[in-house]
Amino acid sequence: MKFYVCIKQVPDVDAPIQIKDGNLIQDTDRMILNAYDASAVEEALVLTEEDDDSEVEVVLVGPDKAQETIRKALAMGADKATHIKTNGDENFDSGTYARILAKFFEDKEYDVISCGKQSQDTDAGLTGGMLAQHLDLPYATNAVGLELEDGNLIVKRQGDSGQEVIALPQPCLVTCSNDMNEPRIPSLKGIMQSKRKPMESVELEDLGLDESALQPKTEVTGYMEKPGREPGQKFEGEPDELAEKVAHLLDEEENVV
């Protein structure tokens, strides 16, 4: 079976960030494979492990620098990759990425397309659903578990209260939560092999998208610090006394118990 996993390179949110004149200043050396996409890669590898005819291909839209992220997915065990090249300074939004990916998939054959449920930096969580719509595929989002069952992908998705178990006939699309698994750390052998795995580069212009399809409908106009919380009080000492003190503060000062 053929699995495509859409992956993205994102800044490490744990790295320090600065905002200067409304712009985000980030350490460009700390770019990583989006955690939710890593879970999607992991699950594709697990699901296709037993089947020698299966193939896991990752697709990334991004600048040259993002190739290190593609290598990471190949080192985890994906078989091949397509890199759709951008300059990296475009102001694309989720809609633009979805239209680029939809164009790429237009003439492809596949059983399952999977994506992370959101990207760690923007948390927008839109691209997967948009792509499913463009390709007219049955889909499910926020998957916390996947299974294959003759011709169907069985998705367990975290809904508002319970977990919904959904059978999607293939071809289909699913977006993955990092609650699904613990992505493997590439082995040394995996890293060595990744260098020999096929990576096809496609220039964005060569996809044949209309200029209008690249126009974003939304735009980030600036960044700012979050208003900080008032500094609180921290108590150390005898547990009994602290417990009593804080319980009374919550009652008398805050009126929240």
Binding site: G232, Q233, F235, P239, L242, A243, E244, L250, E254, V257
Partner: peptide, 28 residues
């Protein structure tokens, strides 16, 4: 977590929670 807490109790939860629960019961 203490950087954003209004009230921080530094202590072992197994020692802090029992008296905390008792005190809240009295208040309630």
């Amino acid at each position: 977590i203490f950087d954003i807490a209004d009230y921080g109790i530094v202590g072992d939860l197994y020692k802090v929670l029992p008296p905390f629960i008792e005190e809240l019961k009295k208040i309630k």
